[in-house]
Design a protein around this nucleic acid. Structure first.
Lengths: 336, 336
DNA sequence: GTTTTTTCCGCAACCGGTTGCAATTAAATT
DNA sequence: AATTTAATTGCAACCGGTTGCGGAAAAAAC
């Protein structure tokens, strides 16, 4: 059926090793030979079988791209960047959807069966046990959007969520809000916990300001909307730092339903700065996560680990910044 | 390093063939043997290497999932459904991002190097040449969201875009609009062409109604918004059938900027019914594409082709229906 | 209890490549 | 021109499995 090494070899009248070498660069072959082989290969329409090759080289160039987040629009951007970035380096993403998976061992086994060279865990809500399960089996892993720790046992790249919480707090304070709240994502997610922590920490230095917090059930429109609908039953804070952008949009929709004007009656600041947040009919003021850098750095780190599997785990954190749009009132000191 | 067949074999004191058979169901092994082998395997933490296996079985269970659409939120839903559906059947998606690829041969070669069992082309904007390139190399391919043809040369599953155009036209007519327009996606996309065709065709039977059309540069918020901003320079039609939902949202945002009320001043109907269209602050009236069915049918078809590669190409089309939300005025005959 | 069938297991070849090693050939030195 | 050194090439073993085939053992039939 398919044309193999042997076919090319016999056509070119050389050994199979010669053909093999002609297709691996850096191998010891004369240019003459290489030309001859490539000619025969072209005539036959041959291209080497990566999987067979991987058997001896122990490199499949397959990278498991695992996530459980298929309902947050920012992840489409994430997948776009990851696939492109991996492709550019000759790696192939094997996409794994863990939305319904609870057993880390199961995913590990599956990815081992396909001999992936490494695994990128792209999620801020997946329990750390997943990343660790890969590491325990000596599979290079980077946890993108994972939790920063001063003693990481797995490579993490993303942002400092605690600092993000502080940034949000500082921003709200600077805008002169006197009563603020954190409307977080799922309480179990480390990202939620950290953002809350930083938020409270920063506000603790401003005792005059009222603070409260609550959680939505997921990083999703529905959950954000539901939570704000619930909150609106009683009195509202002046401004909310929401778990992420999609949550924020749900919150905005609830406020609209309740006849609250944003930012006149209530201020909202999100986190992520996904594409949609810039849409004019949303115009969400938010804390931007530099996802391009995060992702290209994740891939870079992955290729580095392929060279050096026992690399000491590090955390790569990128700074966030707030991007001003239309859901927070202007700073009192610099009126627009 | 990794534990192999041989390790298990020697531990269990049996031949490698025995181990192999113990791990392939339907093989000729006694229960006793199977138990013994599995016990040894469990102790060693062995699981078979799919890629090595694929060398002889000629089945990798890898499916190329190719798309060029990483900016339309509906595709996140699409990827979610595809990955889950494939996983459920023991298949693994190798995700390929063709956003920047123009040469079909290149993609074919790459996927052949990984010996994918089949390819799912999920796109309504990718030139048909891509699907055909796979078919020409005898790789089973299904083109999801592809163009229906009465003589398909590649399996297609999706909707009848011409009929969708007709549905839109009928809906607008029924709502009593006297001047309507199609604001399509990229003119080169077959889906755009077909939707326009059906739209015009249906309206031709109502000579009293004014019809016009134009195209946005992409199925995207920005493109839809830009086009509507342009159109709003002159006078507008009473209602627009937009290329798809994300385009529609761009259009809505432009109208809002121009101070036009929807549906009071202008009516909008989209196509797709993506999750976001149901968000209360968008509430887009749209023609729903049954993507769950489309995708599960695509996967079904793919597994059928794995059994029977020379299956005669078919087109599987699913009916669309309009879902009423808030961007079209009510039907005159049944006021709400 | 013997003969015929079946079931089960191991041998060895093979899937499509890669690579250490030794042999051959070409190039460089003297 | 003879010798040393470097560049190429082929042989054969191996990567981690699968599978056709023949024979031994177990089960069924007589």
């Amino acid at each position: 059926m398919a044309v193999t090494l042997k076919d090319v070899a016999s056509r070119a009248g050389v050994s199979t090793s010669a053909v093999s070498r002609a297709f691996t660069d850096g191998a010891s072959v004369s240019v003459k030979m290489r030309r001859k082989v490539h000619k025969a290969a072209a005539e036959l329409g041959y291209s080497p079988n990566f999987l067979a090759r991987s058997l001896t080289t122990r490199r499949t160039k397959l990278i498991g791209l695992v996530s459980n987040n298929f309902h947050n629009p920012i992840f489409l951007e994430v997948f776009d960047l990851f696939t492109r970035s991996l492709q550019d380096r000759g790696l192939r993403p094997l996409l794994v959807n863990l939305s319904t998976e609870t057993d880390p061992e199961h995913s590990v086994q599956m990815l081992r069966q396909y001999s992936v060279d490494g695994v990128i865990v792209a999620s801020s809500t997946l329990p750390p046990a997943f990343s660790k399960a890969f590491r325990n089996k000596k599979i290079p892993v980077v946890n993108t959007f994972g939790r920063y720790s001063s003693t990481p046992d797995v490579h993490v790249v993303g942002i400092d969520n605690i600092e993000a919480g502080r940034i949000a707090a500082r921003e709200l304070i600077a805008r002169g809000y006197r009563s603020v709240a954190f409307l977080g994502g799922p309480e179990a997610a480390t990202s939620t916990q950290d953002r809350l922590k930083g938020f409270l920490e920063q506000l603790a230095t401003h005792p005059g300001i009222q603070v409260r917090h609550s959680f939505a059930e997921a990083y999703s429109f529905r959950a954000g909307r539901a939570e704000m609908l619930r909150l609106a039953e009683t009195d509202l804070a002046q401004a909310y730092f929401c778990g992420d952008d999609v949550l924020s949009i749900g919150v905005l929709s609830a406020l609209q339903d309740r006849g609250k004007q944003v930012p006149r009656d209530v201020g909202i600041i999100g986190l992520n700065d996904m594409e949609m947040s810039a849409w004019e009919n949303i115009a969400l003021t938010t804390i931007a996560q530099p996802i391009r850098q995060i992702i290209s750095s994740s891939v870079e780190l992955m290729v580095a680990m392929l060279e050096e599997p026992d690399r000491y785990p590090e955390a790569r954190l990128f700074p966030c910044h707030v991007v001003e749009r239309g859901t927070l009132r202007p700073r009192p000191d610099c009126p627009t």
